[in-house]
Design a binder for these strands. Structure first.
Lengths: 225, 225
DNA sequence: GCATATTTGTCCGTATGTATA
DNA sequence: CTATACATACGGACAAATATG
């Protein structure tokens, strides 16, 4: 079969394939721990094994896939230690980004927009949408640091977290009052009280970590029953 | 602890090849901006093009190589904005890691060891060694956060900086009093004054950024003469 | 502006080693 | 212990994009 015609998006096949696999991951059609068999997946995606292997390298580096030498690549199943590590990194960069943010930073608009959208969706009962807007909120906070590298790192952390939450059927944000908390953080930022906003974030992380760990424990208990 | 842990022979050929290319980069045998032609480099390294392309994916994600679609991969030549971005990220994670560090953290031993070694090497006039120990010092500071992800991110940032400094023949650390400053930071950490240590770091970064930018300007002037 | 050479992007076939049923 | 499935790695092929004269 001849190579495909050039893609209008400009991305090459390797990256488009990585994207397709990412979709399979967040859809839950690929379960954590599951092996990705090269010939089968290559056939399913309609790409060659070489192309697929290059895509694997990308996703491995993003922490979504895991290679066990001479055994193959598997969907990464983050354990508790890794989830805590992700939260530790988030805490560090989000808090410092907020603390260092200039008052009247133009990026504040994106922060505010995410919260207001979340409020809207909460009224409509769209909890999935609320969760998405919460992610956007935190990404916007990181955006206050004006650092492309930090933004990219954060996007990767969020992808890893999404993967970790695929296994947790009960969304941890359902009974969480974080939307009101986010509103308060935005207010503090608007007043230029960056230190207080960072402290509020710190409290959020402490509680959020606990909530997530509890959800994991519940998940384990359910599975072993 | 090592910046890039993939040294042993147990790694697969793709990773060993990536390592070989990293060596070519820090040796300066591959210059920033230079194109890496697949067939030529594959022959030189004694690997197939497919293997080489997988290695490229790794190094691209580390920020060392850059892909221009349909044109090939090139050694990344970081501009001023990118170097500033790296310093911005370093400032955020190092300061927060120090601020959050527990007093008597076991990782302090590594911090102290790096400084003492630097003092030693400075007396011997080994400025290259002093520079290396300085890098180890900062990596040890990040180690205080006990976060594998943060440590890996930092290793990547250091690799990018090394690459950026290949072009700068005058090492920016030659007349820099950072060893004494590092001693002071260690003393503060030993006393449990984490906040003051973080503030000292902040001052270091502000000055360091200026020094590096000046070196870049000198480099530009030299090259255009 | 055109023809040509170079290089990438992608695929296939195949050989060898390694882990597992 | 021996099949078997799979990963790992190589080399060759060719179309399409790009650079070159």
């Amino acid at each position: 079969m001849s190579p495909r015609p050039a893609d209008p998006a400009g991305a090459d096949l390797v990256e488009r394939t990585a994207l397709a696999i990412r979709d399979l991951l967040i859809d839950g059609r690929l379960q954590p721990g599951q092996q990705l068999v090269e010939p089968a997946l290559a056939a399913e995606l309609g790409v060659s094994r070489n192309t697929l292997r290059e895509s694997f390298r990308i996703l491995m580096h993003e922490g979504l896939l895991l290679r066990r030498p001479n055994r193959g690549v598997f969907v990464h199943a983050p354990d508790v230690a890794e989830i805590l590590d992700i939260y530790r990194v988030r805490r560090i960069i989000e808090e410092q980004a907020v603390r260092d943010a200039a008052p009247k930073h133009p990026g504040l608009a994106a922060v505010r927009a995410a919260v207001e959208q979340a409020v809207h969706l909460r009224e409509a009962g769209d909890w999935d949408g609320v969760g998405t807007e919460n992610m956007r909120f935190h990404a916007a906070l990181v955006g206050l640091a004006d650092s492309p590298r930090l933004a990219e790192l954060f996007a990767r952390l969020q992808a890893e977290l999404r993967l970790a939450f695929v296994t947790l059927d009960s969304p941890e944000y359902l009974h969480d009052p974080f939307v009101d908390e986010n509103l308060r953080i935005v207010a503090l930022l608007d007043e230029g009280r960056m230190g207080d906003a960072a402290d509020a974030l710190d409290a959020y992380f402490t509680r959020s970590e606990r909530t997530v760990l509890a959800a994991i424990e519940r998940g384990r208990a359910t599975r072993s029953r």
